[in-house]
């Protein structure tokens, strides 16, 4: 339902950036135009759930609400090596299989505490088979989040024109 609602707007805002949907009726493709990654809508939805678990909704909008999964896709597609892209795709495709081993459920069907403990496990275990995928994803989610229009305007304010410098400000 969420996806359908988003599609009605035709444009996605990924962390404040407008992205044009490509072939949005086609379930075999991602909702944004990508040059190197081949992502279907199921994988895209899964990534949205992962991103939403890395930075969850609370009293403020989280990673999913900011469409940061699209930002992650954009960055992995444009700013990473082919090798990184393979790691990313392999990790995304292995995600549910590993999750089932871990908790007996797919990620999308798991409840929030289950998802969280899965993420914590991968985050802390550098030898985990999904570690590479997770490092790329987490890094890009954090980047997209702290540099999002929402955060920069409402939470940790970014000043384009500070107009001052004080080297002895009170700590």
């Amino acid at each position: 339902m969420q996806r359908r609602r988003a599609l009605k707007h035709l444009l996605f805002i990924a962390g404040g950036m407008v992205m044009f949907p490509s072939c949005w009726r086609d379930q075999r493709k991602s909702s944004i135009a990508l040059s190197n990654l081949h992502i279907n809508s199921e994988e895209e939805n899964l990534l949205a759930e992962i991103v939403g678990s890395i930075i969850p909704e609370s009293d403020s909008v989280g990673g999913k609400g900011l469409n940061l999964h699209l930002f992650v896709l954009k960055m992995v597609d444009d700013c990473h090596s082919e090798e990184d892209q393979h790691v990313f795709m392999r990790g995304l495709r292995a995600w549910n299989r590993e999750m089932k081993n871990f908790s007996g459920s797919t990620f999308v069907l798991a409840d929030p505490p289950q998802r969280h403990s899965y993420l914590v496990t991968i985050d802390q275990d550098k030898a985990h088979p999904l570690s590479g995928f997770f490092a790329i994803t987490k890094r890009r989610v954090i980047q997209g989040y702290v540099n999002s229009e929402y955060v920069m305007k409402n939470e940790v304010i970014y000043e384009l024109v500070p107009g001052r410098y004080n080297g002895y400000a009170d700590a």
Binding site: G15, D78, C79, G144, S148, M152
Partner: peptide, 16 residues
Amino acid sequence: NMYPYEFEHRGEMTYA
């Protein structure tokens, strides 16, 4: 006058 989030790649150059 662009804000960081107005840059497609948040300032980063692409791999290409």
